[in-house]
Design a binder for these strands. Structure first.
Lengths: 212, 212
DNA sequence: CCAAAAGTGTTGATCCTACACCCATGT
DNA sequence: ACATGGGTGTAGGATCAACACTTTTGG
């Protein structure tokens, strides 16, 4: 079923850097390639643009197919277009970053799956294609966005403690934050609303907040 | 000379919003379409990605072909991928914004050309395709970047007065700036270096600065 | 009762904003 | 000489960073 054009057309795909928090550290979802090229190498999830969908839909669909989750935050952050970045044919990659809430149960299940695994961003394997470049850019963009706090909600459950929020902030920016100043900043931004409930852990319960 | 693929491939093009200053106002370069669809309508310059070039090269090349100028600032800021945005065939548009120095002589020449004209962004004609959306996004991105000052150098000659820089800032952000505070901000950012020369105008000469 | 995380205020330094006047030149 | 844009300083308020201690619970 061939498709013919008067001029050469590249293939267009989306690649998605999906991040979550595991044990307080930022992790990225990678899949093990099951075919050539780069057989057995790790790569970002992604796939080709379908004829009647927009790029955003493509990224959301691919992510859904790979992880079974509807992304809470999906941001287009750049294109990768080196003519030889894919040895098979020319592929323009539109890069997205997505954040998933840290759901330890589901994440553990993903970990056990043969072909998809979470990797801490501090300990990445070699990646296929130019995915190391894409991932590096994704981390820069994510760190920049984290300063507005609200994107971080996508990494957390619907209700969260301020310590969790601060942990997410630190994991994403790579910088330590001062507890009292961090809370003041959050209060000033007005992006959270306190609830009447508390998280009960090993020690003093912490008040739960939600996105404002 | 047909090109055949196993799966449907969209065409990929770049569209470029080229800005400059004319009489202190922000202007954008539009071309009059010489063919269907949208014959006679105004549109952003742009064109199709060639087989062996990157997107950035494509934008720079198209810009060079349209204006004869090598852009001093060329920023990719988004993709436009609605399946029906071009009635002929599916085209993914990668949008760029570019800034040109305000060179009144050359600009006047362009103005007289039949099919390419500068328009003040405050008085735009109807645009072909979804170029109104692209241009609106470009203006947002540009206003955001202007706050870092240095992108504005691309709108100015190599050496400029602080009043010119402030004028560019105001034209791009749409906000008035306070003269003394603006100069303090520029000094703090450290992005300009003063020269020994002065611009001689109608009144007291103004010191010329250059990018630091 | 003790370990561990939750939560809270103040102070000094810095930065931003608002404001009014003198300067140097061309005409 | 004067009109015009070029150029400068300061004071008050807001904001940010750095600092230590008390509270509450589970074990």
């Amino acid at each position: 079923m061939p498709f013919t054009y008067e001029y050469p057309h590249p293939a267009v795909a989306t690649d998605i850097a999906v991040f979550t928090l595991r044990l307080g550290a930022l992790n990225v979802l990678l899949i093990e390639r099951g075919g050539e090229p780069y057989l057995g190498a790790w790569a970002l999830p992604g796939g080709f643009l379908q004829p009647d969908e927009e790029l955003d839909q493509c990224a959301r669909r691919e992510l859904e197919e790979e992880t079974g989750v509807d992304a809470e935050l999906l941001v287009q952050f750049g294109n990768f277009s080196a003519p030889d970045r894919d040895p098979r044919e020319r592929v323009i990659s539109v890069a997205y970053l997505a954040l998933l809430p840290s759901d330890e149960l589901r994440l553990e299940a993903s970990t056990d799956a043969a072909q998809a695994r979470w990797f801490p961003v501090a300990a990445l394997p070699r990646l296929a294609f130019d995915h190391d470049k894409i991932l590096a850019r994704a981390l820069e963009v994510l760190a920049g966005r984290a300063r507005q706090i609200s994107p971080l909600f996508a990494l957390l459950p619907p209700r969260f403690t301020l310590s969790q929020l601060q942990g997410a902030y630190e994991a994403v920016t790579g910088e330590e934050a001062e507890k009292r100043n961090f809370r003041k900043m959050v209060a000033t931004l007005g992006c959270v609303r306190e609830t009447e409930d508390f998280a009960h852990g090993a020690h003093r319960p912490a008040r739960l907040y939600e996105a404002a």
